[in-house]
Design a protein around this nucleic acid. Sequence first.
DNA 1: GTCTATAGTGGGATAGAC
DNA 2: GTCTATCCCACTATAGAC
Lengths: 182, 182
Amino acid sequence: MTTSAPGASPSVRFTQIVEQARLLYEEQGPEGLTMRSLAARLGIRAPSLYNHVRGKDELEVLLIVEALRGMGESLHAALTSVPARSPRRTALTALAAAYRSWALAHPHLYRLATGGELAREQLPEGLEAWTAAPLVGVAGGEHRARAAWAFAHGMTILELDGRFPPSADLDAAWAEGVAALT
Amino acid sequence: MTTSAPGASPSVRFTQIVEQARLLYEEQGPEGLTMRSLAARLGIRAPSLYNHVRGKDELEVLLIVEALRGMGESLHAALTSVPARSPRRTALTALAAAYRSWALAHPHLYRLATGGELAREQLPEGLEAWTAAPLVGVAGGEHRARAAWAFAHGMTILELDGRFPPSADLDAAWAEGVAALT
DNA sequence: GTCTATAGTGGGATAGAC
DNA sequence: GTCTATCCCACTATAGAC
């Protein structure tokens, strides 16, 4: 997190670092992201990364931020695509589909952002709430919202971890849960 | 996994190793269990462990087995405690309470047994199904059972990870989900 | 800003003597 | 079976020259 002198042209930019870190993480998961591997991908040496980033911890927080933004955009878009005054079930179904498909498209980032403890104090103010807003707005009460979130997260993480039998009809299980929680 | 010669008296026994590994893991989590730390706890040196266990991987599988057994016992007991022919909701409520409290009592083992991919081929035949049996029997159909499992796992893991606000009334969220999924 | 060189840490696992 | 002595690996991070 160093600022460059005016006119300087660093061989790598901060945004490039975050971008490549995200790609590396999406492709290979937590094991795949090391200071060495990231540097190699950027065409520099590992120690040079420390001129731009405080350390690996900062990098991980940045990735969580990216993930929450991505998920949030997907959920907000899903809600927008539903006609106003649609029945609650319509909105919930759309949110569930968006939630699941974002996670399946970015499994490692999904795990990073939703598993383990969250370093809330290092996140941009309001980001977490903004990501959750679509579901909270639709679910019908805070208890219902938490139950629905738990259901969605449970379905998602169990699917990502290969916990359901290959033969399981997960569309049906999702539909069942959404219907019950409507 | 070596067999002792008749009459031999090893200074540590296989069951002791698993027992201490479990305690270490329960107390300190994944980071806390190393071949060195486990050996130290048993009063031997790390290399000696390899006379009893193939390696750390085998140890982890053994811990997963312990965890599935423990969870299963808790769930089967909860179901037994419910009077026969009780309404479905009574049984589901009892199962949910047992599920949650086992997990809260053994957070690290719960994570180990329910997170990440499961090395099914290394587990005792039928163990996984036996652990799941109480819920599967009560839920009312396979899709409903999967939805209920996802809900319970989601609630549990989000609580363990501190994802709910401290002010959240989780009993209410559990009750809401159980009611919806009944 | 980037480099080379290196410190420091921690881990799993093996060889061979007793 | 247990020990000591090592090897090997991988990683984060820093120091100092260019």
